[in-house]
Simulated assay, not measured.
Amino acid sequence: MSPAACRGNPSRSASASAVVVDTATGYHLLKIEGYSLTKGIPTSLSLKSSQFTVGGYRWRIDYFSNGDCADSADYISLFLSLDERANKDVKSPVFRAELYSSMKEGDTAGVVRIEDMEAQVFKLLLRFVYTDSLPEMGNDDEDVMCQHLLVAADRYNLERLKLIYEEKLCSYISVDAVSNILALADQHHCDGLKKACFHFLASPGNLNAVITSDGLKHLSRSFPSLMEELVAMLAPLLSHALVI
C-alpha cells in the first residue's frame, strides 16, 4: 500500500483511564502556651507542631505568630504541611536487597522466595508497591487482613502502608480484639495503635469486660513486659477508683 493510501485511511486506537480519589479525615489539637511570648517571633518564621498521621501520611502545622509574609504581619497564619522528609517512601528496599543478593550469589533467574506469608497478602502488598492504591477487602475479614498487611508492611519497610493499616486497626479495637491488636502494636512498634489500645483499656467498663473474658491472659503469658507497661499505665486510674 502506498504512503498516500495510508494517510487516507488512518488507523484508529482507543484508550481509557480513571482517576480514583480517596479521602481521609482526622484532627490534631494544637495548643499555644505562652501566646504573648510568641508575638516576638519575626514575620515569616514559624513554630511547628508535633508530627501527626492522617490518611497514611505524616503532617505538621506551621504556626506563624506574625504572619508568613509582610502583607500578613498583623495576623496569625496557620498552614497544614506535609512532612516530606518523613513521607519519603523508597519502595521495597528489602526487595531490592534480596534481589541484589540473589544476583550476587549467581542466581540468574533472580528468584526471591517469600516464606511465612499468605499468597493473598503478598499479592495485595505488591499491588500497593506498583499502583500506590489500597486493596478492596470484604467487611467480614477486613480486620484480619489489616493485621496481616501491617505485619507485611513492617517486614518490607513500607512505612506509609504500615501507617495506613495502623490507623485502620484503631477502628477495630474491641473487647474481643484489643489484646491481639495491642500485642501486634508492641511487636511492630506501632506507637499510635498502642496508645489507642491503652486508651480503650483506660475505660473501667472496657477493662472489666476484657478481664472477664480472659483477654489479658495471653498478654501475661507471652508479653510480660507489655503487661507490666499496661499495669503501670492503669495504676493511677485504679488507685483513683479505689479512693472514690
Rank of each mutant, 00 (worst) to 15 (best):
C6S: 15
G8L: 15
P10G: 15
A14Q: 14
S17P: 13
A18H: 07
V19C: 13
V21S: 11
V21E: 14
V21L: 02
D22L: 10
D22S: 14
A24G: 11
A24V: 14
G26K: 11
G26M: 05
Y27M: 05
L29Y: 07
L29H: 15
L30K: 07
K31I: 10
K31S: 08
I32H: 00
I32K: 08
E33D: 09
E33W: 01
Y35S: 11
S36T: 10
T38H: 00
K39P: 07
G40V: 01
I41R: 05
I41Y: 02
T43N: 03
L45C: 14
S50D: 11
S50G: 10
Q51P: 08
Q51W: 09
V54S: 01
Y57K: 04
W59H: 00
R60Q: 03
R60L: 12
D62K: 12
Y63G: 01
N66D: 12
G67C: 08
D68I: 13
D68K: 01
C69V: 11
C69E: 15
S72P: 09
Y75M: 12
L78R: 11
L80D: 04
S81L: 05
D83W: 00
D83Y: 00
R85Q: 06
K88Q: 02
D89N: 04
D89I: 08
S92F: 15
S92Y: 05
P93D: 02
E98H: 12
L99E: 14
Y100F: 15
S101W: 03
S101I: 03
S102H: 08
D107F: 02
D107S: 01
G110Q: 09
G110V: 03
V111A: 15
R113A: 15
A119S: 13
Q120H: 15
V121R: 12
F122N: 03
F122L: 05
F122G: 04
K123S: 14
K123P: 10
R127C: 07
S133Y: 00
S133K: 04
L134Q: 08
E136H: 06
N139D: 14
D141H: 12
C146P: 10
C146Y: 15
L149A: 01
L149S: 06
L150N: 02
L150M: 06
A152P: 11
A152T: 06
A153K: 05
L158P: 05
L158Y: 09
E159V: 00
E159C: 03
R160P: 03
K162Y: 00
L163C: 05
K168E: 12
S171T: 09
I173T: 12
V175W: 01
D176V: 11
D176Q: 14
N180P: 12
I181Q: 06
A183R: 05
L184M: 12
A185W: 01
D186S: 07
Q187E: 09
H189R: 03
H189P: 08
H189A: 11
C190Q: 07
D191S: 06
K194C: 06
K195G: 13
C197E: 07
H199S: 14
H199V: 09
A202S: 09
P204S: 02
P204D: 01
P204R: 01
A209N: 04
A209Q: 13
G215L: 03
L216A: 07
K217V: 10
H218T: 15
S220I: 13
S222E: 06
F223R: 14
F223G: 05
S225F: 02
S225C: 15
L226V: 04
L226G: 04
M227L: 04
E229C: 01
V231I: 13
A235G: 08
P236G: 00
S239G: 13
V243P: 00
